[in-house]
Simulated assay, not measured.
Amino acid sequence: MSTATLPEGNWIRGISIRQPYAACILAAAKTVENRPARWRPGWVLLHTSKTIDQPALRIPLIGRTIHGRQLVTGAVAGVARITDCHQDPEGAPPCTKWAHPGAWRPVLADVQEFPLPLPARGQVAPWNPSPDLVTQVLRQLPDFRP
């Protein structure tokens, strides 16, 4: 894919997610992320933070989902598209078994995992990737079309 075919502007952002939650998203099992603020729809790079939530490894839902998967840290490991961001109405049941009460939930779709994670630095809030990182991403997914 050439840069001439890419959308104009900041068409993709990065989001950092702790392991094992990132692995659950990359396995296409966890379709929402839990955040304190609303996020806008669009394409995101899925960056795995450098820390692993050790207690989460003992949660049966997570253990079943990540069984046999490597927990890569400190790398961009895939892409996804945020299609919506919502909170559950007060007193309503959670939208999925992955939802945390009171959190904003960006809904993730079209998840694509990279064959080779790309070492990179991230941050908690959505961040803008460098043009070089975007080029490396597009090399990983030659059929990806935003």
Rank of each mutant, 00 (worst) to 15 (best):
H67A: 15
K30R: 02
V124P: 06
R13F: 05
V72K: 00
A4W: 10
R35I: 01
I59G: 11
G63L: 08
H100Q: 12
L61D: 08
I17N: 00
S49C: 03
A120E: 09
Q87W: 11
F114N: 00
G102M: 03
P126T: 01
V134P: 04
L61S: 11
S130G: 00
D110T: 10
R139E: 14
P36T: 12
R81G: 07
R81L: 15
L26T: 05
G78F: 11
T96C: 04
I59V: 15
C95K: 14
V72H: 03
R40T: 08
V76Y: 00
W39G: 05
A92W: 15
A23I: 10
C85Y: 02
A56I: 08
W39V: 13
A37V: 14
P41K: 06
V124M: 11
T48G: 04
W127M: 02
N128H: 04
E90R: 07
V72Q: 01
G63M: 07
V79P: 11
L6I: 02
P93I: 09
P55C: 15
R18I: 14
A23P: 06
D110H: 10
G122R: 02
W39N: 09
P41D: 05
C24T: 11
P129I: 03
W43C: 02
G14S: 01
W104E: 06
V107P: 05
G14C: 07
R121C: 01
G91E: 12
W127C: 06
T96G: 13
L118K: 04
Q87T: 01
C85W: 00
V76S: 04
Y21H: 04
A29W: 01
W98L: 10
A56E: 07
P115G: 04
R35A: 02
T65A: 09
V124D: 09
I17V: 12
P129C: 10
L116R: 13
L61I: 10
A29S: 08
